[in-house]
Amino acid sequence: MTKENIVLKYLRKEMDFPNVWCPGCGHGIVLTALVRAIAKTGWTKDEIVMVSGIGCSSRAPAYLDFHTLHTLHGRAIPFATGVKLGNPKLKVIVITGDGDGTAIGGNHFIHVCRRNIDLTVILFNNNIYGMTGGQYSPTTPSEAYSVTTPFGNIDRPFDISKVAEAAGATFVARSTAFHAAALENYIYKGFQHKGIAIIEAMTQCPTCYGRKNELKDGVAMMKWFKDHSISKAKFKKLSSESPESIDPDDIVTGIFVERDDIPEYIESYQNIVNSLLNREG
């Protein structure tokens, strides 16, 4: 039995291929997981708006046959917020990266979590600024090398999922390009969630990050994800039983937040509108 490639159904025919991503890049895997999750929802192409900022990951929407909006560095979330408020029937998906989403766009990121507006944000975290040639980002690990940390990174990295949770996001999950099935599942759950959903997708950049940090190619980096990922449940167990066995570099994966007790922003706004309209008429 030949399995149908669902992704092909969603590719934009006018777009030139091959895509902009390097050999070994994890973005294609994340994008595939995303498209497969979309296919599961049964949404039509006409009701999906995909909004991105600037960076490698933000190039993804151009390849897909939805309403697609490739905006400015860091600003995908405000544009997406405008689209969603302008037409709440649309399914609005934000594609961003670690630099785009948590450095230059960091203010929008925390506030969209607080506001709890019904958007799904897929944050491709490859720990580096790839498009500009490999400068360190807010998620580059301490001591790691990049073209702007030639002597090792002295910054401390963000844990993006924790930032999202602290900022009030009502759905937060993380997986990696190696765990594509789990990633697809989390994205799908994010789509089903009413309110802000942040899905942090760990993805590899062999060109800019791996080569500088003793991970020579995409395969080596995928293997690293495999060996260094630890489920939320296992992390919890180890934390109480043998915390010394946890590698501080390990990536904890799973769904960290999933709550439905916080009102969604547009619903709250619509309640005000309805009460005013009732009062008038």
Binding site: H67, L69, T71, L72, R75, P78, F79, N107, H111
Partner: peptide
């Protein structure tokens, strides 16, 4: 919005929905 840049992004995004 949380800042001036955000507000500008919001109105451009919303304009694409016909507003």
């Amino acid at each position: 919005m949380e800042d001036e840049i955000g507000a500008m992004g919001v109105i451009v995004g919303a304009a694409l929905t016909g507003h």
